[in-house]
Amino acid sequence: MGKEQFHQPDYSRKVAGVKFTVGSAELIRQVGHIQVINSKFYEDLPGKYKPAPYGPLDTRLGTFQKSQNCETCGLGAQDCIGHFGFIDLEQPVFHVGFFKLIIQVLQCICK
């Protein structure tokens, strides 16, 4: 009596499509801590650089200064991982930083 050969079943499938997304607009609003509505980085104070409230450098999104703690978690710049903010845009936009990665993924999938 000889050994029986093992045959692995073929479960290959065709790729029907690829969809790239980071989540719905509602999901992004839910995970965001604040809405960024101010385009200024700093407040207009003479001789001081204080991050503008509801701006891209708001300290509720994290801190970049060693002497200041994050207003959301209370940790310093070394320990705070940063927090999400969101901006409502009128039209969908592409993030140019992802183009190279998307092209590489598509080249692996699409022949």
Rank of each mutant, 00 (worst) to 15 (best):
Q5C: 08
Q5W: 06
Q5Y: 09
H7R: 11
D10V: 13
D10H: 13
Y11A: 04
Y11V: 11
S12Q: 02
V15Y: 04
V18D: 02
K19I: 15
K19C: 12
S24K: 01
A25F: 01
A25L: 04
R29N: 02
G32D: 03
H33V: 14
I34Q: 04
Q35R: 12
I37Y: 06
S39P: 13
L45C: 00
L45V: 14
K48T: 04
Y49Q: 13
Y49T: 13
P51N: 08
Y54F: 14
G55S: 11
P56I: 11
L61G: 08
T63D: 08
S67W: 08
N69P: 06
N69A: 06
E71M: 06
G76M: 08
D79A: 11
I81W: 15
G82Y: 03
G82Q: 01
H83C: 07
F84P: 02
Q91Y: 15
Q91A: 14
P92R: 02
V93D: 04
V93H: 05
V93T: 14
F94Y: 12
H95M: 12
V96A: 13
V96C: 09
K100T: 12
Q107K: 14
Q107A: 10
Q107P: 01
C108F: 15
I109W: 10
I109Y: 12
K111Y: 09
K111F: 12
